[in-house]
């Protein structure tokens, strides 16, 4: 399993040809208390950069983009009842959706964990 990050503060945990996608600890901290999340349904086909999910904190609404192309195999149903999971465990139980990759080579352009953690410190 390999962990990747985007400059939009999403993470992807890749296992075979399926990537689990969520937002980073930095992102949840910046958003503040999350009160709503809407994740895509299984079967939805996403192009890289498409609006994939919505996350709303007390203060503002944000879109979560598909970091790579693929077909949604599962959305995290637990977030509907308990969106604060994203604050409590953003890079674990607070995942958003799982995506079957269309083009694994798209992962090449993403940051690895060490590079992301270093980059975030500079923000």
């Amino acid at each position: 399993m390999t962990l990747y990050f985007t400059r939009e503060h999403e993470w992807l945990r890749v296992d075979g040809d399926v990537a689990t996608v969520g937002i980073s600890d930095h992102a949840q901290h910046a958003l503040g208390d999350i009160v709503f999340a809407e994740v895509p349904d299984a079967g939805r086909s996403l192009n890289k950069g498409d609006d994939a999910a919505v996350v709303e904190s007390v203060k503002a609404a944000s879109d979560v983009y598909a970091p790579v192309a693929g077909e949604v195999v599962e959305g995290n149903a637990a977030l509907a009842d308990d969106p604060s999971l994203i604050n409590r465990d953003p890079e674990g139980e607070g995942w958003f959706f799982k995506l079957k990759l269309s083009d694994p080579s798209e992962l090449d352009g993403l940051m690895d964990e060490a590079a992301y953690r270093e980059w975030v410190k500079t923000l």
Binding site: V35, F36, E38, V54, E56, V58, A61, A80, P83
Partner: peptide, 9 residues
């Protein structure tokens, strides 16, 4: 009162 959980702003 707004139905559901999503804030309407």
């Amino acid at each position: 009162f707004v139905e559901g959980r999503q804030p309407v702003r």
